[in-house]
Design a protein around this nucleic acid. Structure first.
Lengths: 143, 143
DNA sequence: ATGTTCATATTCACCTATAAGCACTTTGTT
DNA sequence: AACAAAGTGCTTATAGGTGAATATGAACAT
């Protein structure tokens, strides 16, 4: 189970440390791709395989399906963690996530998310995320 | 599995580097043809065989189906990657894709797509691709 | 407090993939 | 035969990716 929030920084070549606590669950090789709300998603190979299976069933003739598949597959790349615990974030993904130096990595159960630190702070600001609203949704889900 | 996004440029003779990460999966010889949404499609020999099979099942009696088959088969050409990792894009296909110099190659699972860089940027603009639509599709697929 | 260990940050050096230029070959045209 | 156009192959330069070494700093044990 991928959980927690970790602050780290990209090196000059765009590499990032995978927090030690996530390393085992995410695996030595994993996949990152464009996510929602301006972050990047990272999946373990197992989780990604599930996802790919679903994408394969979508019809080529449907424009909406093409868009969806293009978004995730063209944005995806396999990463490998090096001996020092780092992995490279491809330049197009760094650009998509507006990442320069300080980033936040969070565990979200089945995946990790990589955020530009500023975006993460903005996303978590009171205007955007309120504990009350979250509590309300919890009730809806019967938690 | 063909994934990722790569920016490269055509040389003066219309040749293009096949990104190192796609080279193994696409094979030394592969097929490119006219694609949808203004790009070119590229298939490995295996995937092309699959695709041809599907085209064969379409009813010749249906004008739409005839058009569809003609579109893909008439545009198709076999390409070979040279020692330096490049392949030639036939001039009619370059013309179809409005390609001059800067192009983007993406992996989309079973095929690659070759886009004029400008068209790709336009395709990915907010007006065209909405996060809401993607999120909705994700929910539908149970991701 | 001091020393030890582990995780992360930083720097540098090397190597590979790609870009770009040029020359040669082939093909088709006049 | 001479030429132009298109295709092929080689060479060199460079940016970006990769790996190693070292520095920093926090956590923990003595």
């Amino acid at each position: 189970m991928l959980i927690g929030e970790y602050e780290h920084s990209l090196d000059a070549k765009g590499r990032l440390i995978m927090p030690a606590k996530l390393r085992e669950d995410i695996g030595e090789k994993f996949i990152i791709t464009k996510g929602l709300d301006g972050c990047l998603f990272g999946f373990s190979q197992n989780e990604w395989a599930n996802f790919e299976e679903k994408l394969k069933t979508l019809p080529l003739t449907n424009k909406n399906a093409r868009d969806f598949v293009r978004f995730f597959l063209s944005g995806a790349i396999e990463c490998e963690i090096d001996k020092q615990g780092r992995f490279l974030i491809a330049s197009n993904l760094r650009e998509y996530g507006a990442m320069e130096k300080e980033v936040v990595i969070i565990g979200v159960g089945t995946r990790i998310e990589i955020w530009n630190k500023e975006s993460w702070k903005a996303y978590n600001s009171d205007e955007n995320i309120s504990a009350d609203a979250i509590a309300e949704n919890m009730t809806m889900l019967g938690i």
